[in-house]
Every structure is written in structure tokens, then in C-alpha cells.
């Protein structure tokens, strides 16, 4: 068990190292380098040479990779060329903003999805289930930018209750984001809830049809006791991993939503960094996102290991 734990953690770290390599190579492979990108049309002659010398770009790639990883390990991603600030400072507040958004969407979406999924599964094919399932399919199929726009149209333009775009500066205290954040959270939670809900519903239906649930009924177990003791523990096990995957996916979906709402998070920073051709920043963001992704999946795996008796008591 502990061996398995360590194995997973080491594997996660290895993946991260691997990803950092890929990110680095990908950026290297782009035509030009940080200086040509930064200087743009002025990138020629002594100016370019000076820039390259200042940033140490002439040195071999391997040395620079080593430096970059060592710096990263200490939380130092280097300097952003376009912003002339340490990257860790820029990413810090942006990551905070995105995490607030993602976390709130998760805290609202996941319990709601599980609750509705269980209801739909238990009342399978009844009107309640049909309503829930149909709405979920709608929520899944409408792209985020459409649902975001609709939300803005209804709640900001027509009703005027909530701001349509965020004008708060990135490093403002959290309290100032409160009213800004409601619509993005709804847009984000909508899709996620739909995905998890459908999975929970299927899982509940599967378990309800299993031999052990029939046996529980024939053993005289009352309905709700059966649901809580025999059905739910088994039905919710497979959803742990799905929830982790969905949250990780959410970090991608957040890019679109942040751009639509002009929300100052990591997603919008990515888009900005790309259009500014700020390669060092792009590199750093990619690595941070990868780390979050791997971390979440690792966490879900470990949680499943702990919760599922089949895996927990596995013999080696």
C-alpha cells in the first residue's frame, strides 16, 4: 500500500519533469527566440546581440534548461520580457484569481452534480429524471462562450443585476471580486455539473441493477438504508477520478470564460502572453497548469486507493 503510494507520487513527479522538458523543447523549436520575439521589427544588429547576451540566450540549450528547472524549483521563473517584472509575481496573483474562480465553481458544482445525479439515477425514467437529464445534455452541448454570452445578456444587459465584464485590477483584494465572479462561476459550473451528473446517474443505475442490491432488498433492508449503505458507496467510487479530471479540465475551460468576462486570471494571462510573444511567461504558465493537472489526478488516485476497499486491501 505505502509502496503503491510512493510509486504514484514518484510517477507524478517524473511526468512533471517530462512535461517541463516538452514545454522547453517546444518553445525552443519555435522560429526565433525570446529576443526576436520581444524586439520585434527592431530585432537585428547589435541590439539583438546585446539582448541575447543580456538574457544569456547564446549559451547551449541544455545549460539553459538546467538553469530554468533549478530556478523553477526555487519558485523563480525568470523575468517577463514584455512586462519587465519577475514572472512569479505576475503568476502569483493571477493563479490566486483563477483558483478562486475554479474552487468556487467546484464547491458549488460537484455537490450539486452528485445530488442531482443520485436523484436522477434513483428515479430513473420518471419525469424528474427526464427533466434533469435533458437539461444536463443541453448544458453539456452549449459551448462556454455561448452560455457566458447568454448569461451576460440576461443578467447584465436585461436585468442589470450583475456586471458583464470585470474591471477590477488583478491584484485587488478578494472582496472586490465578489460581484464580478458570480456569472463566471455559473458559466463554469454549468458544464462541469452536467458531466459529473450524467456519470453519477449512470453509476447509480448500474449499481441499482446489481446482484448485491437485489440481495439487500431480499434481505429486508429498507429502501433508504439500502440507498445509503449499499448503493451510494459503490456508485460514488468511480466518480472520484471523474471529478478530478473535470476539475483539471476546468482549468482549460477557464481560459475561454476569463476572456469572455475579461477576468484577470491565469487563463487570460495565457492569451495575453501568447499575443505578446512573451515566451518565458508562456513556458511558466504551461508548467504551472501541468503541475495542477498532475497534482489533481494524483490526489484522486490516492483518494481512490484509500476509499476503495478492493484496492486498499490488495495483496502484493
Amino acid at each position: 500500500m505505502i509502496k503503491l503510494f510512493l510509486q504514484r507520487i514518484v510517477l507524478g513527479l517524473l511526468t512533471l519533469v517530462f512535461v517541463s522538458g516538452i514545454v522547453f523543447v517546444a518553445v525552443e523549436a519555435l522560429p526565433g527566440d525570446a529576443c526576436t520575439a520581444y524586439l520585434g521589427r527592431m530585432a537585428k544588429g547589435t541590439r539583438l546581440e546585446n539582448c541575447r547576451r543580456d538574457f544569456g540566450i547564446e549559451r547551449p540549450a541544455l545549460t539553459r534548461y538546467a538553469e530554468w528547472t533549478l530556478g523553477t524549483l526555487q519558485g523563480d521563473f525568470g523575468m517577463s520580457l514584455s512586462r519587465d517584472k519577475p514572472i512569479s509575481d505576475i503568476i502569483g496573483t493571477r493563479l490566486r484569481n483563477t483558483l478562486i474562480l475554479g474552487l468556487s465553481a467546484t464547491l458549488i458544482g460537484v455537490p450539486l452534480a452528485i445530488f442531482l445525479g443520485i436523484i436522477a439515477g434513483l428515479w430513473r425514467d420518471r419525469p424528474l429524471d427526464l427533466w434533469i437529464s435533458t437539461i444536463a445534455i443541453f448544458a453539456m452541448t452549449i459551448p462556454e462562450f455561448v452560455s457566458s454570452t447568454l448569461l451576460i445578456l440576461v443578467f447584465s444587459v436585461w436585468l442589470g443585476w450583475l456586471p458583464g465584464i470585470v474591471t477590477t485590477p488583478p491584484n485587488a483584494p478578494l472582496t472586490e471580486f465578489l460581484s464580478d465572479i458570480i456569472l463566471p462561476i455559473i458559466a463554469l459550473a454549468l458544464v462541469m455539473t452536467a458531466h459529473i451528473l450524467r456519470m453519477v446517474r449512470t453509476s447509480v443505475i448500474d449499481v441499482m441493477g446489481s446482484d448485491y442490491v437485489q440481495m439487500a432488498r431480499l434481505k429486508g433492508v429498507p429502501y433508504w438504508r439500502m440507498v445509503f449503505r449499499h448503493v451510494l458507496p459503490n456508485a460514488l467510487l468511480p466518480t472520484i477520478n471523474l471529478v478530478a479530471l473535470t476539475i483539471a479540465w476546468l482549468l482549460g475551460g477557464v481560459v475561454v470564460i476569463e476572456v469572455v468576462f475579461n477576468y484577470p486570471g491565469l487563463g487570460r494571462l495565457t492569451i495575453d502572453a501568447i499575443s505578446d510573444r512573451d515566451l518565458a511567461l508562456v513556458q511558466a504558465i504551461a508548467l504551472v497548469l501541468a503541475a495542477v493537472y498532475i497534482g489533481l489526478n494524483l490526489f484522486a488516485d490516492l483518494l481512490t486507493l484509500i476509499v476503495n476497499p478492493r484496492l486498499r486491501t490488495m495483496r502484493h
Binding site: 446489481s210 446482484d211 440481495m215 434481505k219 429486508g220 458507496p233 459503490n234 476503495n308 476497499p309 478492493r310
Partner: peptide, 25 residues
Amino acid sequence: LEDIRGGELALIPQNAGQSLTPTMR
């Protein structure tokens, strides 16, 4: 029915492996 089932009238199922709830001791 719940009183009778598993009490005075008990069933032994065909496939015990699948008829025991996997998450319960």
C-alpha cells in the same frame, strides 16, 4: 415484506460473490 424477507424467509443467492456488497465488511 421487509420484516419477512431475510427474517422468517431468507434467500441464499446464486452468485454469492456478486451478492455481497463490495464496500461493506
